[in-house]
Design a protein around this nucleic acid. Structure first.
Length: 727
DNA sequence: TAGTCTGGGCTTTTT
DNA sequence: GCCCAGACTA
């Protein structure tokens, strides 16, 4: 086994750098994963470091899995008997640590804690706002949530939260109450995982020493996307004699809104002035055309360390820019082009990826794929786990795992409906509080002890329903250890009659039930690992983690989710000002810079072919609007591009350009329309003109008119009030 | 209490 | 144009 052959000079240098702080600045496609895996293997094979001493932190679980298997491949099948390499995301690592340490520490939760997701957090914040008699319309829960999250990422606890405005005073109070509520629920949110991990290591010298002793060698991937909490955590673990190997690329920093700060790259060099810095510039992924385009985009950012990305792969094909008419047309273009590429034998379906700025953009694509009867893969865990039926079942499981979880209890107590409305819930909460128990445990007690007196506060109907529910919960709770996970899920589903509740015979009902079954399948895979692990997995899955390799189909994903991946053929759609860059970033230069980096990330995912697509007209919020081409498109040197000139293009030109390019014959003839080409019309503002063309869009008609004074305008007939003069 | 209605907000991006 | 929370009605 020769670990070092096949590495270029810089890679070699990085892999074999002497232990100590090392910063690898790795351009896209420069083999950073390779460097990381080879370095780990090198440390184990050549430096005699035991795998158990190594901690490698990645950005997604998927990356962690891949890295593990690549390291194992490099090291061969030697069954090592010591502890394995520790590999995972910051959050997963922290969660594991906190579970281990929660037993005897001063931490305000037990090792059975649950991890609250976004919507759980939201509901606690709503609850807190309600308690303070604050109107969620005046004080947006989402804003408070962001403020709390930002504070935690900066390691600012509620006691240290400084309030100097009305809003921040509200946020401060909600923050305090929110933490109490989390504690009552024996729950942590995402940010807490990092927050408490840091606090634990800071305040408990013994634990810190133990962890430093264990993890003497630390590697971090995607370092530019660490936030303060993560950075501090790293520094704590790395300790006095740091062997800390960080790989990152400030140009690919796209998580500022999550507290990430690419300046951690500079901070690293300040904190470790002795750090060795290695620059990886040679690209092994893309054609030079793609790299030139990417550099043209990123080099416009001021104040950065320029990289000269180069490849030995040659120039390759030009980048194709296409302007579609609307999002449906945009999606058709993508699907037709993919079909054509596959048909030509050039590529496999799985080689193609379609990237977009916002999740909402996947809809039109999905419809186009369905229409064409072509399979596709959609990356996006949140979408699945955010579904009502999936959340319901997870809530049941969380409640079984942790009966103190009130958020989950309230979600499922009357789902499916069992006659427990607001009144009964209020009575339950009161009764539980009097008893000094979390409501979930109160219900279990109710079922196990029975007793008239416990039931006194309830109506007869509510009492019966609550006793039933408590009995089920107690049963599940007792058997949760012995029953295989999937069977536990089956038991719950059967006991509560979930299928009858969700599957009402409609197509939607069937879909919902299938989602439940999919969750059950996931549970089956975790059967040997148990409920705790399963729930933790559910809480910490990333979108990328849902990307499966088993299906040979094109992939649809957000630009964010595309980070770290590569594909032979890449489409980036929605290259309109307002979409990419996103409207919300217009005001803030930092946000705009991040949009640019996001586009850069997208461009550099492509190995061979790159398609940049935009739509002249787009429906957002149900309103149709017209956008300018993305300003980023204008930064691309013309000689790298082929395809239609951007700018004015009539709908039929867009369709025609597409259809002639791909040699497809038929051009759809428009159905009947009120206006006809050649008609003379009058408009209140624009004056008189002649109809150039018309197009029916859904149930409205769109008319392109050349006005004598105002020039060419596109109008929606129902709004424009065009008067027909002759024709 | 359960089901229907309605109005408002929503679309950034996700561990 | 969709989805949810809260209001309203049976």
């Amino acid at each position: 086994m020769d670990l070092l052959s096949g590495l270029n000079h810089q890679q070699h240098q990085a892999v074999t750098a002497p232990p100590g702080p090392v910063l690898v600045l790795a351009g896209p496609g420069s083999g950073k994963t390779r460097v990381l895996t080879h370095r780990i293997a090198y440390m184990v094979a050549h430096l005699g470091i035991r795998p158990g001493e190594v901690l490698a932190v990645t950005f997604t679980n998927k990356a962690a899995r891949e890295m593990r298997s690549r390291v194992e491949d490099l090291l061969g099948e030697e069954p090592s008997n010591g502890p394995r390499l520790t590999l995972g995301t910051f959050h997963a690592f922290s969660a594991r640590m906190l579970r281990r340490e929660a037993a005897d520490g001063d931490l305000p939760f037990t090792r059975d804690f649950v991890i609250f997701d976004d919507s759980d957090q939201r509901s606690l914040i709503r609850q807190a706002l309600k308690e303070f008699n604050l109107d969620p319309k005046q004080v947006q829960p989402a804003k408070v949530q962001n403020a709390i999250s930002a504070a935690k990422n900066e390691l600012i606890g509620p006691e240290a939260f400084v309030a100097n405005t009305y809003f921040s005073e509200v946020a401060r109070r909600v923050y305090l109450r929110y933490q109490q509520l989390l504690q009552q629920n024996n729950a942590l949110d995402f940010d807490d995982l990092l927050f408490w991990a840091v606090r634990l290591l800071r305040e408990d010298a013994g634990t810190l020493a133990r962890y430093r002793q264990t993890y003497r060698h630390i590697l971090v991937d995607e370092f530019q996307d660490t936030n303060t909490a993560q950075y501090v955590l790293l520094r704590l673990l790395a300790g006095e004699a740091p062997d800390l190997f960080a790989v990152g690329d400030a140009d690919q920093s796209i998580y500022r809104w999550r507290g990430a700060d690419y300046r951690n790259v500079q901070r690293f060099q300040q904190d470790y002035p002795q750090a060795q810095v290695i620059l990886l510039e040679q690209n092994y992924r893309s054609t030079q055309t793609i790299l030139d385009a990417a550099m043209a985009v990123i080099d416009r950012l001021p104040g950065r360390r320029r990289k000269r990305l180069f490849t030995e792969r040659g120039r390759g094909t030009r980048i194709l820019v296409h302007e579609a008419y609307d999002e449906a047309d945009e999606a058709s273009f993508v699907v037709e082009t993919i079909a054509l590429l596959i048909h030509s034998g050039e590529v496999q379906p799985r080689d193609c990826a379609v990237m977009y700025r916002t999740n909402a953009q996947s809809r039109a694509l999905e419809e186009a794929f369905l229409r064409a009867k072509l399979p596709y893969r959609l990356v996006g865990a949140q979408r699945f786990y955010g579904r009502r039926e999936v959340k319901d079942i997870i809530a049941y499981l969380r409640l079984i795992h942790n009966p103190a979880d009130q958020v989950s209890l309230l979600r499922v107590l009357n789902t499916p409906p069992r006659g427990l409305g607001a009144k009964s819930v209020a009575a339950l909460l009161r009764a539980a509080e009097e008893r000094g128990l979390p409501p979930g445990e109160f219900l279990i007690a109710l079922a196990e002890e029975g007793g008239e007196e416990l039931l006194a506060p309830f109506t007869r109907r509510a009492a019966a329903a609550l006793t039933d529910f408590g009995a089920m919960l107690a049963r599940w709770f007792r058997t949760r250890q012995d029953l295989p996970l999937a069977e536990l899920v089956d038991r719950v589903l059967a006991d509560v009659g979930y299928r009858e509740y969700i599957d009402d015979g409609t197509e939607e009902g069937r879909d919902r039930w299938e989602n439940v079954l999919e969750l059950r399948n996931a549970a089956q895979e975790f059967s040997s690992l148990g409920l705790t692990t399963f729930l933790e997995h559910l809480a910490l899955v990333s979108d990328q983690d849902t990307l499966t390799e088993d299906q040979n189909a094109p992939i649809l994903l957000t630009l964010h989710a595309a980070k770290g991946l590569e594909f032979p053929v890449v489409f980036i759609i929605g290259l309109d000002d307002g979409v990419l860059p996103h409207q919300r970033s217009f005001e803030d230069p930092e946000a705009m810079a991040e949009e640019r980096r996001l586009f850069y990330v997208g461009l550099t995912r492509a190995k061979d072919r790159l398609f940049l697509v935009r739509a002249f007209r787009r429906r957002t919020f149900g309103f149709s609007s017209i956008a300018d081409p993305s300003r980023f498109l204008l930064d691309l040197p013309q000689d790298l591009l082929e395809g239609a000139q951007l700018g004015f293009q009539t709908p039929s030109e867009a369709t025609f350009a597409r259809q002639t390019r791909w040699g497809s014959a038929s051009i759809a003839s428009p159905p009947e329309a009120r206006y006809r080409v050649g008609m003379r019309v009058a408009h209140a503002t624009f004056g008189e003109g002649v109809v150039l063309e018309t197009r029916l869009d859904h149930d409205d008609e769109e008319v392109t008119v050349v006005f004598e004074e105002a020039g060419i305008k596109r109008l929606v007939a129902s709004l424009a009030g065009l008067e027909i003069l002759e024709g």
